[in-house]
Amino acid sequence: MDNSTKELTLENIPNHVAIIMDGNGRWAKNKNLPRTKGHQEGMDAVRRVAIRASKRGIRVLTLYAFSTENWKRPIEEVRFLMQLPSQFFNTFMPEIQKNNIQVQVTGFTQKLPITTRRAVNRAVKETQDNDGMILNFALNYGGRAEIVFATKKIAQAVIDGTIKTDDITEELIESSLQTSMLGEYQNVDLLIRSSGEQRLSNFLLWQNAYSEFYFSVTKWPDYDGDSLDEALLEFQKRQRRFGSVQ
Rank of each mutant, 00 (worst) to 15 (best):
R118S: 11
R48P: 02
M43A: 15
T127A: 04
N100C: 00
K98T: 04
E76P: 01
N70Q: 12
R79T: 13
F108Y: 10
I19R: 03
A28D: 09
I96Q: 01
W27C: 06
A138P: 02
Y141H: 10
P85M: 12
R56M: 14
R59P: 02
K111V: 03
I96R: 01
F137C: 07
S54F: 04
S86I: 04
N70A: 10
A50D: 00
I114L: 13
L135K: 08
G132V: 02
A53I: 00
T115C: 07
Q128P: 04
L112F: 14
I58D: 08
I114T: 13
Q104W: 10
K72D: 08
A123F: 01
A28N: 07
R26T: 12
G143A: 15
M21W: 08
M82N: 01
R79I: 04
M43C: 13
P34R: 11
F88D: 02
I96P: 03
A50L: 05
V49A: 07
L63K: 03
V103D: 08
N121E: 15
K98R: 14
I75H: 11
T109H: 09
N32L: 12
A53K: 01
G42Y: 12
R118Y: 06
F80K: 06
F137I: 01
F89Q: 04
A53F: 03
G23F: 02
R48V: 01
Y141D: 12
G142A: 08
T109F: 05
H39A: 03
V49Q: 02
R79Q: 14
M43R: 11
E77P: 11
T151A: 15
P113K: 07
F89Y: 04
Q104K: 14
F137S: 11
Q110M: 05
M21H: 12
D129R: 13
R59M: 02
R117F: 10
E76L: 09
L139F: 15
R73F: 13
N70F: 10
A18C: 04
R48I: 02
R56N: 09
T106F: 06
E41P: 03
A123E: 01
I96D: 09
N24H: 09
T115H: 15
